[in-house]
Design a protein around this nucleic acid. Structure first.
Lengths: 217, 217
DNA sequence: GGAATGCTTTAGACATATCTAAATTTTCAG
DNA sequence: CTGAAAATTTAGATATGTCTAAAGCATTCC
């Protein structure tokens, strides 16, 4: 049985190991968990003792099979609760992250099974992220970042990588909603910012910072 | 902002102060929270510093107005979640206590407001307990214990004081459901056990231990 | 290839919440 | 009204998770 804190570290390690190849560094974890490197080292020793991570001093860290299974369980709970908050309670997609961050730690297998059924076994959360299977596998999506799309291509906005209220409200204001079709009109060579045409015909400016957080297919 | 533990102590103090007149003792709290008296003393000092309780060494403890408001807020959350678990997720009333015990600590005012609306502003939880108002007042019910009912009286089962799985499953097996009408047929002078007739015509034995946990009107 | 730089770990503290054992206060019974 | 029993508090530890400061590796840049 893991503490809230241990679960959060497992999630953080999982999330960082997706972003870059190779093992996850102590400093990267410290930044993501908003703690200091020394605290991370303490926790890594502890998770290593429990065989949830592969860890060699100074060499970075990687989840074991069991560690990944647990991380995906937490992510599954998080995303199911986000669906509940949006679909059933009517929260905006920009307001659910922090609450789900708490709900994901509620301990009850039966609860997760029933919640999943109540929500009709959703495959994606309100941000378009796939919901890990009960067995602890992350579904593949094959989405690309909007930054990788060429001028003239028509694509569909499928998911967002950033879940902060500020970012999501910015998208709302721009008229960029999940599922909408967008066409890349121009790419600015200097700052890699984009102009895209939305379904409604309006033209929207997207800085590289915005575009790299938009996943399309 | 209170920790989970502080919230649990406030709830425990509230609950004990209902059971007996006068201030709550350190030992009673130690028993209810399944800790040792010494740990309770530490926490009482802390809650006293925050002015959530009136506390004088060796003299027992009582909630301040603010302390009671917070305790009722926690109880409100607990009972709303219990309604959710039974009404929406289909849990049995015998299986929701421990999960609600965790959910009650989720911090989000907006969440409680929306959950309350989603559940249609319920007045009672699945065990018949009244749900405190958003303002932090506990509704009066005027229920009596079944042990106080005289032979021959017809009463309606309104609530239970004990929420353990074992107790509630025992009631299920006896055919005693909330809302059912029961008639007290006999009271045993020696052990204060009862025989009651239910709506369905069957006769049910209830020990004093059971009867004192049944509230009727 | 060796020092400067930047990560990472160790060492030593602190806060929370718990415990046991000992000391203290209150209560109550004779 | 006093002494023993019961209740409570204090003292000193433990475990978790955090911090700062200092020391130990690793990389890389001449």
């Amino acid at each position: 049985m893991q503490s809230f804190t241990e679960e959060n570290y497992l999630k953080a390690i999982y999330s960082l190991s997706l972003r870059h190849e190779g093992d996850v560094s102590t400093n990267a974890l410290a930044e993501l968990t908003a703690t200091k490197a020394a605290s991370v080292t303490d926790m890594l020793r502890k998770l290593s003792d429990k065989e949830l991570i592969h860890y060699k001093k100074y060499q970075g860290v990687r989840l074991t099979e069991e560690g990944e299974r647990l991380a995906l369980q937490v992510i599954r709970r998080h995303r199911l609760w986000e669906v509940f908050l949006v679909e059933k309670l009517g929260f905006g997609w920009d307001a659910v992250h922090d609450i789900a961050e708490q709900l994901e730690h509620i301990r009850s297998d039966e609860l997760v099974v029933r919640l999943d059924g109540y929500l009709d076994h959703p495959q994606f959360d309100p941000h378009g992220d796939p919901i890990p299977t009960p067995a602890g596998k992350m579904p593949e999506t094959g989405y690309r970042k909007l930054t990788e799309v060429g001028v003239g291509e028509d694509v569909r906005l499928m998911a967002v990588l950033e879940h902060s209220t500020e970012f999501l409200q910015h998208l709302d204001r721009s008229g960029l909603t999940l599922g909408c079709i967008i066409t890349v009109k121009t790419v600015n060579d200097f700052d890699k910012s984009l102009l895209v045409r939305t379904e409604t015909g309006s033209t929207v400016f997207a800085s590289q910072d915005v575009a790299k957080n938009l996943l399309v297919s």
